[in-house]
Write a protein that binds this DNA or RNA. Structure first.
Lengths: 143, 143
DNA sequence: TCTTTTATTGAGACGGTTTATCAATTTCAA
DNA sequence: TTGAAATTGATAAACCGTCTCAATAAAAGA
């Protein structure tokens, strides 16, 4: 009895469309993923090791990438690792990233989103998702 | 006789401050770098292979990182690689990406940029660069 | 200039992250 | 229940970027 009915449905629909199969591992990983705001494959590997010690790291990577294709996750490369963001967690959030210390501040701005829609429709596009990252220095790093 | 007098001066000042040396390789790499808007170490390696076949990849990496410390460049993790952005290059553009056919439309929007600055300063950040990508379907793909 | 000191270079080894391989297993439609 | 097809886990391999180190080049001193 999962709590993530809606997202499970999104996943199943994606699987059905692409002749992929619904497996115990995919269900387990999705449940764990949806509890996070963002996570790396390595973190999830250790986190799930207790529930299923035989779950392979490769499966985690494959599954998180599958979630990206299904529109449930979004990959973000930071430093040497890849962060997988949970799209449905807080709706969508954008990032302010300090290139000095690596600090990440999340934000949401309706006006920007509205302007994005405007740009898109002016070009005949319908937006499904977006990525906005602002890189700079936070005040401590600026000195 | 280099055309990049100002940036060469910035580099030399940084070198002087840190007891580092001005070398033929650093001059060569800076000249090549300033002609680009952004470039990866690998790309630069191949590009410079003609001028100096013995220039090592490690030197390119070291030098591009040096430029970041000197404030001439900024590293950005894009996909699996690191892009080095030319700070002094102003023509920034954002992307509309069709997930159906892969078409990419470039755009620029001053209002969005202004709002980004607002968000940043509200959080005490100074933006150096940003990345905005809108994913969706173009009108041919929507049908 | 010549000498001395110190930083830099190039080549390859190395380490961490992610993907590819493949036999065994599981899913699911018939 | 059966069988085709997808998935898994373990590990090898690929990939990117950094580190190591002997040889070299740049700056500073005499």
């Amino acid at each position: 009895m999962s709590k993530h009915v809606k997202e499970m449905g999104v996943l199943k629909e994606h699987l059905g469309k692409h002749q992929l199969k619904f497996t115990r591992q995919r269900e387990l990983i999705l449940d764990a993923f949806l509890k996070q705001e963002h996570i790396t494959a390595e973190e999830m590997y250790h986190q799930l090791a207790r529930k299923d010690p035989h779950l392979g790291l490769a499966t985690i990577y494959r599954t998180l990438n599958l979630f990206c294709e299904a529109g449930l996750a979004q990959a973000r490369h930071f430093g040497t690792q890849t962060q997988y963001d949970n799209i449905s967690h807080k709706g969508h959030h954008d990032h302010l990233i300090c290139t000095g210390c690596g600090k990440i501040v999340e934000f949401e701005n309706c006006d920007i989103e509205r302007l994005q829609e405007e740009v898109a429709s002016r070009n005949g596009f319908t937006i499904h998702t977006h990525r906005l990252e602002l890189y700079g220095l936070c005040s401590p790093c600026r000195r």
